[in-house]
Structures are given as structure tokens and as C-alpha cells.
Simulated scan of single mutants.
Amino acid sequence: MQLDVFPDQTRLRREEPEKNVRRFYMMVVQRDLFGGASLVREWGRLSSPGRVQIDHHPDEGQAIDALANLMTVTRARLRRYLRVKQELLTAGTRVVNYPG
């Protein structure tokens, strides 16, 4: 069994039922018939078709590089989102004492 050093697909999912948020984001590198490769990105609400964007690249290596660059940006956005959410949770934290 050979492990992928450079992943050719990524799937992200976000669910927050209390806010009615159910989203997905998928990126896949696919070879085409002409020796190139395409980076296919799909995003939207879970259980719906979503939007699709296809970026064509001359070879699979460049498509994987584009995927890696997008994942770097996506991770930065996720870290920023989680940091902001954590700050909001910290600022809005209340201590509730229950009788008993």
C-alpha cells in the first residue's frame, strides 16, 4: 500500500444545527483526456448540489500545488473563524448556579 505524499482531494464539512448551518467544501484533482489536470471545487449546503468551479492546469503537479495553496488559505480562514468564535464564547460566558 502506497500513501499519498501530496493529497489530491480534500473534503470539509461544517454543521451547526442550532444556527441551521450545514455546509460542505470539496476540492479534487482530476486528470483530463489531454494530459492535463483540473482542480474541481464544489461548495454549498449539505443535501443540495452546490456550486462548482473548475480550474484547468497543464499537469497534475500544478493542480496539486494549487490545491495545497487553497488549503493554506482555507486553514487560515478556519483558524481565524475559530479564534473569533472562541473570543465570542469567552466574552459571553456566564456562570449559572443551579440550586441543589
Rank of each mutant, 00 (worst) to 15 (best):
R13W: 01
R94G: 09
D32P: 07
Y98V: 07
N69C: 14
I54E: 10
N20T: 12
T90Y: 15
T90R: 15
L88T: 12
R94M: 14
V40S: 00
F6Y: 09
Q53E: 15
P49C: 11
D8C: 04
D4F: 03
P49Y: 09
R80Q: 15
Q53F: 05
D65T: 11
E15Q: 13
P7D: 10
I64A: 03
R51S: 12
Q9V: 01
N69V: 11
H56M: 08
H56A: 12
R45F: 08
R80Y: 10
L89D: 15
W43R: 03
D59F: 06
A68L: 14
R80H: 10
D32Y: 06
L12S: 13
S38K: 13
V28H: 10
S47G: 04
R83Q: 10
E60W: 05
L3T: 06
A68G: 06
E15P: 03
Q2E: 14
G50N: 11
R80I: 01
D55Q: 11
H57P: 08
E42P: 01
F34G: 02
A66R: 11
R11L: 06
Q62E: 09
R13D: 06
V95K: 01
D55C: 03
R45K: 11
H57Q: 00
V29F: 02
G50D: 03
N97D: 10
F6L: 04
R14H: 07
L70M: 12
T10G: 08
Y98Q: 06
M71I: 11
D65C: 03
P49W: 12
R94Q: 14
R80E: 13
G50V: 05
R94Y: 11
T72F: 08
G35T: 02
G36N: 06
M1H: 13
L46V: 04
H56S: 14
P49H: 07
Q86C: 09
R83P: 02
R11K: 11
Q9G: 01
A68Y: 04
P7H: 07
P17L: 02
G44Q: 01
Y98I: 09
G50F: 04
R83A: 14
N20A: 15
T72P: 01
A91Y: 00
L82Y: 10
I54R: 07
T74C: 03
D59W: 05
